[in-house]
Computed example of a mutant assay.
Amino acid sequence: MLRLRCTTEDLLHVSIAEHPAPLGELTLAMQMLQRRDPDPAFVPWREQIARQLPAEGRRLLQLVSPSGAGPMFLDPPSRTVEEGLDRVLSTPRAEVRAELKRVCAIDRPLTSWTKRLAEQDREAWKMLDQALRTGYRSVLAERWHSLRAGFDAETAWRAKILARQGISALFASLRPTLRWNGLTLEADFPRHLDLTLHGHGLVLRPTLLWSGYPLVAYYADRPTTLIYPALTPLPLLAPARAPDPLCALLGTTRAGALRSLITGRTTTGLARELSVSVAAASLHAKTLREAGLIVSRREGKAVCHECTPLGLDLLAAEPPRTGG
């Protein structure tokens, strides 16, 4: 049983993740690869990944468990692989040792490589860097566009529920995976995990590479992340080569802008997300605003943009699309 004991302050700071984390999704894929439950969506996917995953990528299986346990330093909330790798490789030694000790106590073997990672052995960490890069290229690189489209569709729908009906309806939409018992959020879980949040809030992050019970990344000094399975898993999405109807309608950059504005973002933040100039981001925001898809408001010297209900409806109506 999983129990998250929330305060009213935590409930006032419930949010939805803005983007998937590449290395976090890779970790979940490695966990899902080892499971043997007969989920019809993942059985052929497991067979395919097992065939194509090189030996270098398989090293990750020593660190992550089919039960969903894995070192939290392998799941940084980064937007890109390179940013994620920088964060992983700069993890403080004390955190590395504590996390490896935790996962080995659950069900991971204490291998010589694991010991060398805990001791900050340079060669062992080079092997980890290579394992993460190889794993991402083999498992996610070709499907990342599909994964991002599915993630955006999922979060757009949940954000629409949160905006129109509130927190209660948002969590009701996640039943029976999650349920409330007073201010305690409960879920079925393979082991007993009782955590008390400290008012920093809760971030809901969907994943397209896990099924069943939710997972949690708990932090004492910042928002806790609750990872739950999206309605449509990655194996059921159309491949990346499939046409993107939203891009066809708005253009690739403006479609990306609308997806990124599911949550509020300044013009500068939008420019950074799209890798364009601030002036170009402002122009794209103006076009979306005039179409009624976003609303803009001034906050001090900055202008913040976010989707309107019409924009959320448009995003919620796009893929997941089945691959036939």
Rank of each mutant, 00 (worst) to 15 (best):
A153H: 14
G135F: 00
S146A: 15
L128W: 05
L132A: 01
S146F: 11
R158H: 10
T80A: 00
L110P: 01
R79I: 09
A156V: 08
I167L: 15
L170W: 09
K115A: 13
T91C: 08
G166K: 11
G84T: 08
I161P: 06
L170G: 11
W157H: 14
S90P: 01
A169S: 15
W144V: 13
K101Q: 10
A159M: 15
K160W: 14
D129S: 06
F171R: 11
K160E: 13
Q165D: 14
H145Y: 10
L147D: 06
D107L: 03
L174T: 09
F171L: 09
W144A: 14
D129Y: 04
T111G: 05
T134D: 03
L174C: 09
A153E: 07
R137S: 14
A163T: 07
A153I: 05
W125M: 04
G84D: 05
L132P: 01
R164K: 13
G135T: 00
E142M: 11
T91L: 02
L100E: 03
Q120H: 07
S146I: 11
K101T: 13
T177R: 11
S90C: 02
R148F: 13
A141H: 12
R148M: 12
S138R: 03
L174Y: 08
R148K: 14
M127P: 00
L162D: 05
A94M: 03
R175F: 06
T114I: 13
L147A: 13
E119T: 02
I167T: 15
V81D: 00
K126G: 07
R87N: 01
V81I: 10
R102Q: 09
R148I: 07
A131S: 11
A163K: 11
K101N: 08
G84P: 06
L178F: 10
A118Y: 04
A94F: 04
F171E: 08
D152P: 02
R93C: 01
R164D: 12
L117H: 07
P92F: 03
R175I: 01
E95S: 08
D86R: 14
